[in-house]
Design a protein around this nucleic acid. Sequence first.
DNA 1: TAGTGGTCTAGACCACGGC
DNA 2: CCGTGGTCTAGACCACTAG
Lengths: 228, 228
Amino acid sequence: MATGWQEIHDEALRRIQSRDWPPGALIPNEAALAREFGCARATVNRALQGLAKAGWLERRRRAGTRVTLSPQRRGQLAIPLIRHEIESKGQIFSHAIITRQTAEMPSPQRAALGLQGAPYAQHVQTLYLADARPFAFEDRWVNLAAAPDFATAPLDRISPNEWLVQNAPFAHGTLDYSAAPANTAGPHLNCQPDTPLMILERRTFGPDAPVTHVRLSYAPNFHLHLKI
Amino acid sequence: MATGWQEIHDEALRRIQSRDWPPGALIPNEAALAREFGCARATVNRALQGLAKAGWLERRRRAGTRVTLSPQRRGQLAIPLIRHEIESKGQIFSHAIITRQTAEMPSPQRAALGLQGAPYAQHVQTLYLADARPFAFEDRWVNLAAAPDFATAPLDRISPNEWLVQNAPFAHGTLDYSAAPANTAGPHLNCQPDTPLMILERRTFGPDAPVTHVRLSYAPNFHLHLKI
DNA sequence: TAGTGGTCTAGACCACGGC
DNA sequence: CCGTGGTCTAGACCACTAG
């Protein structure tokens, strides 16, 4: 049996899920619940704020707390390093640099990152392997203005993915998953050009400037798994 | 300029991202930070708990608070109703029931839901449309033992998706995205059987029993978008 | 065992926003 | 206006665990 604010959290969630507090209903205010549970109002507040953040409740000053009408569930998607993703399955991780060159960033990537002008960038194609079998093919452009040291990073020893995580901490970014034919990534992943693959396009922004644009083609049978 | 616990949260995050507090480092304890910011320890605690929950800090009693070595970013993936997903893009939502019949649940779905025996279930195939164009094709099995009223749900007026959300609140579930050829969903989505599609397999469990298994084939060009 | 974070309390003030 | 949730405080006790 839980005690403290978690107990109130769990009991409130039970009442919501059991429709004891039906969707859209106003629930008792914090002071009333504090009396009911025999605790301070702050303890109730903590419990209810958690439920509100999780989407079960909607709270407004003066108007009180209501059960969300159609709770929109949120999935927590962990974005691990590819190395960790592979090692957590008990497989051996390795990577191979296919091409690496400094060049002007092409238009599509420039546009995706919102870059003006023609910034110099480094283009790296990398194959990630699990137990020496292709896991994903990565086509990456790095804005050298935001991460100048990347030009001399020892990518034979540390993958571009991991180097950037460790050396170019970022503030925010976007992920975009879609399905597409393997096309030119096919040969690297030992599949036909028309094989459906999961594609991840990722844009990463530092505090001041865009850092990198990545297109990652996962080998066939890749699954993106979430719990809700 | 923020005030209160958010100010401390933001300042701490700035110190982490700027490597003022480098990865792995021990940061000052709560009492010291409370003195620095001129506030109560509870206020510092609230700020740091938020950063810990977001993965930036690791906190342990007696050992203190450390900056996470390789912060694993988490994406928040909202799981909207398909209707809301479409309407939020300014399109008109509609749906059409393709098939609907009560039958014994087949093995793959039974296994996915962990069901023993041969429970009766309802099998529904639904096409979801945005502006009268195919958006997704759904193949769903509903465990009638967990949601008996589904057998008589007016699915011509409310989609299976929405009916279940409103009438069979669930405790937890799993989502599984992958890429696959359209196959038999192709004709419904106006594409060739070999067109790559994003597939969502979803399992939903109520407090007591498994509720439903869904395989959703999204039309071409569907993108799953996340911010991190 | 001693230092750290986790939590609770009783009270207070404030911000918001129905009415 | 005034009831509601949001937050802060000062202090207290507890749970955990490194040393």
